[in-house]
């Protein structure tokens, strides 16, 4: 099963990337897309322009953000030892959005370099996670009900903060803010992609390296210590890496919901709970789903497009309810 998955998932990744590059308001033949890396002359000048400046950064960003959100979901579920943890539910995404909103409205133009937004989103994500982790503990153990309640409170607080900023923001800031809260890959270009590459890559690699430790941690904090883990260090590392990645992903694409919750669930159902399989498989499936959803979002309302975050929530919420019922 695991072996089959590690054949099917990479194939799906290639397929969905090709489709994502080929489909859109100006369709490019898929054969030409596939041959393009080897022979640039298969595309017309106009197609090349679309490919270089729009489709390629967009698909790449979609792959990275999808992989990141799914990996973050898997990692947070491991740290909180609860399958309900998700960057959206426990407030990490909301914290990142609030950080981004703060930067958009208060940062001004001189602060709006390519690193300012990811950094602000990262700080917001860290603060939200620390708040939820701190409030969600009872007698040194993570208590799921308190954690979820703390997540609801952090979400509400961040939502109010974003609302406040949209109230005081000017028209341009308001438009930018609306973009964050819906989640979209529409603004993807090299200027959003390039600064995201390093933090997301670091976060993904770091989380993969923590896979065995997350397995051990699933037994419980005390048991993890008995087995030779320093649980506090592990939690700090994993939370830090998750916030780095989610903060960057949210800064680039807004808070896209449900990928972080649904993807690890699905993978666990089919491939089991071990993080050495769960993390890489979730990354691939998350990337496939987000790029697939983004391509669908472009086609459904062409030549306009749906925000992909909206589509993910529209499809993800009923799917999650179905998961809960079975």
């Amino acid at each position: 099963m695991v072996r089959a998955a590690f054949v099917v998932l990479p194939l799906g990744l290639v397929l969905v990337a090709l489709l994502g590059l080929a489909l859109g308001s100006a369709a490019i033949p898929i054969k030409a897309v596939a041959l393009w890396p080897f022979d640039a002359s298969v595309l017309t000048a106009q197609q090349k322009l679309i490919m270089d400046n729009i489709r390629l950064p967009r698909v790449m960003l979609g792959l990275m953000v999808g992989a990141m959100l799914a990996a973050a979901g898997a990692a947070l579920q491991g740290i909180f030892r609860n399958p309900l943890a998700d960057p959206g539910l426990i407030g990490v995404s909301a914290g990142a959005s609030l950080g981004a909103a703060t930067m958009i409205v208060l940062g001004g133009e001189h602060l709006a370099g390519p690193w300012a937004l990811p950094l602000a989103a990262f700080v917001g994500a860290v603060l939200a996670t620390l708040a939820v982790y701190g409030l969600g503990r009872r007698h040194g153990m993570v208590s799921p009900p308190s954690m979820l309640l703390a997540g609801i409170a952090v979400n509400a607080l961040a939502g109010a903060g974003i609302g406040l900023f949209s109230y005081v923001g000017d028209d341009l800031q308001l438009r930018q803010l609306t973009f964050w809260t819906m989640g979209s890959l529409g603004a993807a270009g090299w200027s959003t992609l390039t600064p995201s590459l390093l933090p997301i890559g670091l976060s993904l690699a770091g989380l993969l390296a923590l896979a065995t430790r997350l397995d051990v941690f699933a037994l419980g904090e005390r048991e993890a210590f008995h087995l030779g883990l320093d649980p506090r260090l592990m939690v700090r590392l994993a939370v830090g890496l998750t916030c780095l990645g989610v903060g960057t992903a949210v800064a680039a694409a807004g808070p896209v919901g449900f990928i972080g919750l649904v993807v690890p669930h699905l993978v666990r159902l089919v491939l089991g709970a071990g993080h050495r399989v769960l993390l890489p498989a979730s990354m691939m499936l998350g990337a496939i789903l987000l790029v697939g959803a983004d391509t669908a979002a472009r086609l459904l309302a062409a030549p306009a497009e749906l925000p992909v975050g909206l589509l993910c929530s529209l499809l993800g919420a009923p799917f999650f309810l179905w998961l809960l019922r079975r």
């Binding site: 579920q77 699933a218 037994l219 419980g220 087995l227 089991g272």
Partner: peptide, 20 residues
């Protein structure tokens, strides 16, 4: 010990030496 996820018995036994 409350196990959060559906690890199998053999996986849990193997966790005994996962870090050593």
């Amino acid at each position: 010990a409350q196990l959060a996820f559906p690890f199998t018995v053999e996986q849990v036994v193997r966790l005994g030496f996962a870090l050593t």
